[in-house]
Amino acid sequence: MLYGITIIFATLFAGEALSRLLQLPIPGAVMGMLLLTLIAILRRGLDRRVVDAAGAMLRYLGVLFIPAGVGLMTLGDEIGRQGWALLATLLISTVITMAGTAWMLQHLLRRKDRLNKNAIQDELP
């Protein structure tokens, strides 16, 4: 476990450093995620200990958003001024984005699956 946690934090540091030094518009943590994926591709797999440590961190991912979420209490005045217009915009836009993306992607995935199936059948004697 210690080894796994060390690797994850080292990758996070590398990601943060890259993002800062190269002034990328990508946050360090996302760079770290991409870096660790790249390492896994190059090594053709990751150490069991890294996988276990990552699993432990992801298991309760939701809890990590709570401290920032409680910060909503400081926005009472800001939201109050434009009130429901802000909340309605947020709600409607989130529903449209999620529904639109999911619907379109499922359509494309199924089309691709059908094409593949046909291609396989064509190859059969």
Partner: peptide, 28 residues
């Protein structure tokens, strides 16, 4: 006040960084 809470709960908030990196595993 929120800052008092956040100062205390900050270690949980800080774990968002390594947890994002950990998403590399299911991705891979």
């Amino acid at each position: 006040p929120y800052p008092v809470y956040f100062a205390g709960a900050q270690p949980i908030h800080m774990l968002l960084g390594p947890a994002t990196v950990a998403l590399a595993i299911p991705l891979y």
